[in-house]
Design a binder for these strands. Structure first.
Length: 226
DNA sequence: GCGACAG
DNA sequence: ATCTTGTCGC
């Protein structure tokens, strides 16, 4: 669908409310061959951001394709409006490759969001791709009272009795991830996939590799411009 | 009014 | 997210 990224806060809120109705939470995902991750970093007092997409083969997890880019930071950081800060660059990097991507992992929330439309959902709807929100901290929902210490331990992420996602331990002893459906997949499937994608780190391989790329790229640009 | 608040 | 010193653990 055609991307539209308001610069105005009121319009951003309205757009989230409108697009949230497009989210499909429970779709039987087809057999997957490629999994992708996308991440964004900032520099120069947040006026410029750099982004990267990494596509891995599945299940062998070899990096098969990478895309990098940069652009102006189009929106301030406002909790629950992260999309308008990061989605424009992500969309630009992903749009030409969406036919190769079977599922996209995003560093942020899916439907575990005040209007059930976090960054992962936003990218999923715009690109018509299955997406999974893999946030490193909580935005909405209650912190579970108890959570096992081992990889695979999980607890429902709930808000007012509503199931928003899963708090999932992806490695022994690390802080959990806050998982939620972004678009076109179901939570149980997302949980198992993310665990498979965490053979080494707390973050799933596609996000870990995308994060490494944007960090290196940001540092490279800071050297070049000083 | 107060606290919470993805990256 | 970025900045940024020391520190705890394997």
């Amino acid at each position: 669908m055609k991307p539209y990224f308001p610069t105005d806060m009121k319009k951003a809120l309205a757009l989230q409310r409108e697009l949230a109705s497009r989210v499909k939470e429970a779709v039987r995902p087809r057999k997957i061959r490629y999994v992708a991750g996308v991440d964004v970093a900032y520099h120069k007092g947040r006026s410029l951001n750099v982004g990267a997409v990494v596509i891995l083969s599945y299940p062998d997890l070899e990096t098969v394709e990478v895309a990098r880019g940069e652009g102006p930071t189009p929106f301030p950081y406002v909790p629950s409006l992260l999309s308008f800060r990061e989605a424009p660059l992500c969309y630009e990097l992903l749009e030409s490759k969406k036919r190769k991507i079977d599922v996209l992992l995003v560093d942020g929330q899916g439907i575990a969001h005040p209007r059930r439309f976090g960054l992962a959902s936003h990218l999923g709807v715009l690109l018509d791709l299955p997406t999974i929100g893999c946030a490193k901290s909580r935005l909405l929902g209650d912190e579970p009272k108890r959570l096992g210490k081992r990889k695979g331990s999980r607890a429902p992420l709930k808000y007012d009795g509503e199931r928003l996602g899963t708090v999932l331990r992806t490695r022994d002893g690390v802080r959990p991830l806050y998982l939620s459906v972004g678009h076109k997949c179901c939570l149980a499937w997302a949980e198992e996939l993310v665990l498979e994608l965490c053979p080494r780190f707390r973050l799933p391989e596609p996000l870990s590799r995308a994060h490494n790329l944007v960090t290196k790229e940001r540092l490279r640009m800071e050297v070049k411009s000083s």
